[in-house]
Design a protein around this nucleic acid. Sequence first.
DNA 1: GTTCCGCATGAATCGATAG
DNA 2: ACTATCGATTCATGCGGAA
Lengths: 288, 288
Amino acid sequence: MKIFTKILNGNCAKKLKELENDSVDLVFTSPPYADQRKNTYGGIKPDEYVEWFLPISKEILRVIKPTGSFILNIKERVVNGERHPYVLELILAMRKHGWLWTEEFIWHKKNSYPGKWPNRFRDSWERLLQFNKNRKFKMYQEAVMVPMGDWAKIRLKNLSKTDKIRDESKVGSGFGKNISNWTKRDMVYPTNVIHTATECNNKNHSAAFPESLPEWFINLFTKKEDLVLDPFMGSGTTIKVAHLLKRNSIGIDIQEKYCTLVSTIIDQKEDLLFKKSKKNETNKKPRG
Amino acid sequence: MKIFTKILNGNCAKKLKELENDSVDLVFTSPPYADQRKNTYGGIKPDEYVEWFLPISKEILRVIKPTGSFILNIKERVVNGERHPYVLELILAMRKHGWLWTEEFIWHKKNSYPGKWPNRFRDSWERLLQFNKNRKFKMYQEAVMVPMGDWAKIRLKNLSKTDKIRDESKVGSGFGKNISNWTKRDMVYPTNVIHTATECNNKNHSAAFPESLPEWFINLFTKKEDLVLDPFMGSGTTIKVAHLLKRNSIGIDIQEKYCTLVSTIIDQKEDLLFKKSKKNETNKKPRG
DNA sequence: GTTCCGCATGAATCGATAG
DNA sequence: ACTATCGATTCATGCGGAA
């Protein structure tokens, strides 16, 4: 099984034109938010954000497979004490151009940026918007099942303490039966709220999101040898995870240094895969 | 201190006209979602939702104080496999009519039990949209401070049955010691993600949300003797909590049976307060 | 080999000050 | 009046060094 990883350096609106129609299984990306990343993307103004993003979303719509999914990680800024509506406007605009707004996952960032303001608490969540070309898309739900977590444990404990069978009728819909099934299994399906901490430990290169985020969506929407695309690659978290999970991938970034960096890392990993017998040459802490 | 609780029976668009300008400190409500509660509100169609809600939101804008807040609990339905955009359109429309969209809190319903559909996981969150008349509004942030900014941990601390279970993957390792650390540590401000278990304790009538939800916002945005309004009262959770927290309140509902029921409950509680020889201070720190 | 403490560091936001 | 920049605020996390 040979996996390819393509890194393209340039403006993604242009570079996307080089890709074929209906060829990508999953687009997972986190574009620069409005007024952020000024040094690299020129800091798109909130009022111009939709206009800036629409041409890119059109290209993504072209290159994605009818069965593919587009996950867009984005959050609106506060402007003059108010949430700026550009994300809402973007969703509506993308729908007009043919995208289906299938779902909105919530990424709950447990360690969000600190701060206290008179009118506001810390913003600790971001949107993960799912768009599709078609009502029928591929989704491998079993790939992201989780060990039965807090919910089930607490729930089961409470149930066992009180009575199991009586109260179920009120809640309805065979609640009790399902419960007993779940106790036999160890895995349950997750919900549409994902909680992960942001990684603040990278000394060399800060990633916008932790690896577990693209990992979850790559497992959910692709299988091995499928094609993953990140048109705003940045430090390459998506691409690296895709490679690790044996998915083909294409990353695009406007900054050459990121492209070089990610290429190097991917090459190193390929090397490691080859030399898998000698596992101790990594930069991991040598025990003793 | 004499607290009043007014229950109005009728269509809220009309009944709201009886209220005075700039008189309400907090509106907390959960309107019927599109296509829900067909028997009472005629099952508003998603496509007509904005049109239906706008006259009501205008009245709310009129009666709310310049320093007041409007918390709208709402979530869009899935229609034909796609999230319907009526909530997004509503936010944009309300902004055009003068509302400020200050914040979007996320209510994470932690114990909504797992479930799945072919293309969809369990939906375990809802929007709590905050709208304001003015950039300057009242917010009593200290009233909702928590020991270490995570509600889940609070819950774990309070639930002595389950105090061995940790929210995340970190198991073992002196969990009990950590608990004692939490109690020593100072109070911190929460974030804009609210975790609450969905309570299933209402025997007679299903409430849209647990009491802890309006409690949090009433504590955050009002002080004692302020006025709380819920124009879609339903089973009256908001009104009951407001009364408990010594806030004046007005509840409106189109169904007479709800109005009668809530009135009865409030009266009963007043009786209890009398007979209990006023030993009723909660463990919350009193304000004002 | 553990456990514990100290420290740096984030897709931030507000209000004040300066041009 | 409007934009641009700066300082103050604040907390979960994971690392490294120390007991």
